[in-house]
């Protein structure tokens, strides 16, 4: 197994994939935390902004659709993450592991 790890660490594709994955995760994370804390800061510091009615003749304020869209945003980004991971990152990881396993066999045919 350590042999396998060594091959993977030595593979530049692994590090490229790592970078892509982490950029993707941090981007989604910053969208979620950004919108969440924007919401919390507006509620804390300028609540009147969310108290404006959607249009004349309604009691519904902007706060309601804004709140609901944060819920939907969280769900949508979570789903996006899963589909990206399943369709892009998992196959790429698989091929890196396969390459490392082949390399292990070449250097030492006795390793599992």
């Amino acid at each position: 197994m350590e042999e396998l790890y060594r091959h993977i660490i030595a593979n530049p594709e692994f590090h490229a994939l790592r970078k892509r994955r982490s950029r993707f995760s941090w981007m989604l994370l910053s969208i979620v935390l950004g919108s969440y804390y924007t919401f919390i800061f507006v509620v804390a510091l300028k609540p009147s902004a969310l108290a404006i009615p959607l249009h004349s003749g309604t009691v519904i304020t902007w706060g309601i659709p804004v709140g609901l869209s944060i819920i939907l945003l969280c769900l949508a980004l979570t789903a996006f993450f899963v589909s990206r991971a399943n369709n892009t990152f998992d196959p790429a990881t698989r091929s890196i592991i396969d390459a490392a396993e082949r390399a292990c066999l070449e250097t030492d045919p006795n390793v599992d």
């Binding site: 969310l50 944060i70 819920i71 993450f81």
Partner: peptide
Amino acid sequence: GFDGLIYVIGGIASWPIVMFLLAE
């Protein structure tokens, strides 16, 4: 009223964080 929504949104927003950073 509306302020109950803060708890609701806080409860939801933690899940993407669990997903992006921790789960796998």
